[in-house]
C-alpha cells in the first residue's frame, strides 16, 4: 500500500497537463446527470490525476518539468477513415489573452486526438475584473492567431463565447476571418436580444448554446482539482493555465462519440498567485 507521500506531484514538476479521455461512456453517467460542467471537470480531472500519481514511478519524472497525465485507456483517437463522418468541436478556456497558451492548448488536443483539422474552434475569453469590459483591443491579438489557424488549414471555423451584440459587431467588422459562432448561455436561449439575433442572421453567425458558468474553473478553485496531489505548502502556487473541452459528433447520426477535457496548470514559483487573483 502506498503512503500518502507517494501520491503527491514531485517537487520538480512545474506544469501538469491532464486529459480525461472520453467521458461519454459509463463514467460520466455514474454521476448525476444534472452535474454542472464545472463539477464534471473537477471530478474527472482530479480522478485521472490521482490515479496517475498513484502509480507514477519517480524515476520517470525525475528530470522533468512537465507531467502529462493522459488517460491512455480512455482517450479515443480519431481514425483517418472516420474523420470525414465526424465533427470535432474544441472550446478553449483561457485565463490570459496569450496566443502562446492558446496554441499550446490547441496543439495538445489535436495531438491527443490524432487529428490535423478541427472543425469548430471556440474561444472563451478570460473575465476581466469589474469595471473593466472586454473590448476589441483585448480580443485582437488572440483573434489573429485564430485567423492564422484557418489560413493554415488547421481549423475550419472560429468562434467566440459570450460576446454581447456590440462586442460581436466590433469583432466582426474588424476581423479578416469572421467569427462563425457566438456561444451564449443556455439560460438565455429563449430571451435573446433582437439586435443579437438579427446581426447573427444577417452575417451568418451561428448562435449556439453552452451550459458553462462565466468562469469554468475560477483560479481559486484549482485546489479542488489538484489539492489532493500537491503538498499543502504548494497549494497556493498552482494556477490553471488553460482548459480545453473537445467533443466529437458523428454527424449524420446525431450522436456524441467522444467528449473530454484537457486541463493544464502551472506552478508559479513566487507567491504571485494570491496577489494576482483579482486580475483574472
Amino acid at each position: 500500500m502506498m503512503t500518502t507521500n507517494n501520491m503527491k506531484i514531485p517537487d520538480n514538476i512545474e506544469k501538469i497537463i491532464v486529459d480525461t479521455g472520453n467521458l461519454i461512456a459509463c463514467k460520466e453517467l455514474r454521476r448525476k446527470a444534472s452535474q454542472t460542467p464545472r463539477d464534471e471537470l473537477i471530478e474527472s480531472v482530479s480522478n485521472i490525476l490521482k490515479k496517475h500519481i498513484e502509480v507514477l514511478s519517480p524515476e520517470i519524472v525525475q528530470n522533468k518539468r512537465i507531467l502529462e497525465c493522459p488517460d491512455e485507456s480512455q482517450i479515443v483517437r480519431i481514425g483517418k477513415e472516420d474523420r470525414c463522418t465526424l465533427k470535432l468541436t474544441v472550446k478553449i478556456f483561457v485565463y490570459e489573452f496569450d496566443p502562446v497558451l492558446i496554441m499550446e492548448a490547441l496543439k495538445k488536443v489535436m495531438n491527443n486526438l490524432g487529428v490535423t483539422l478541427v472543425d469548430s474552434l471556440i474561444l472563451a475569453f478570460p473575465t476581466l475584473p469589474a469595471p473593466q469590459k472586454l473590448t476589441l483591443l483585448h480580443i485582437q491579438p488572440v483573434w489573429k492567431i485564430l485567423e492564422d489557424l484557418v489560413r493554415n488549414e488547421r481549423v475550419v471555423t472560429i468562434g467566440v463565447s459570450d460576446l454581447d451584440s456590440d462586442q460581436l459587431r466590433d469583432l466582426y467588422e474588424w476581423a479578416k476571418i469572421k467569427p462563425s459562432v457566438n456561444q451564449v448561455n443556455l439560460e438565455s436561449c429563449c430571451v435573446m436580444p433582437p439586435e443579437m439575433t438579427s446581426f447573427a442572421r444577417e452575417n451568418d453567425i451561428q448562435l449556439l448554446t453552452h451550459n458553462d458558468p462565466k468562469v469554468l474553473l475560477p483560479p481559486e478553485h484549482v485546489h479542488q482539482v489538484i489539492g489532493h496531489v500537491v503538498v499543502a505548502d504548494d497549494r497556493q502556487k498552482w494556477k490553471p493555465s488553460w482548459i480545453v473541452r473537445y467533443s466529437v459528433m458523428v454527424k449524420c447520426r446525431g450522436i456524441i462519440q467522444n467528449k473530454g477535457y484537457i486541463f493544464s496548470a502551472q506552478k508559479v514559483l513566487s507567491n504571485i498567485v494570491e496577489n494576482n487573483q483579482g486580475d483574472h
Binding site: 453517467l29 436561449c189 451561428q206 449556439l208 448554446t209 451550459n211 456524441i256
Partner: peptide, 17 residues
C-alpha cells in the same frame, strides 16, 4: 436530465435549444 446532459454536450442553435 440525461437528455439535458446530452444537449449540453452538442452544438445546438439558440432557437432550437
Amino acid at each position: 436530465p440525461l437528455i439535458k446532459k446530452f444537449l449540453s454536450s452538442v452544438d445546438v442553435d439558440v432557437d432550437t435549444q
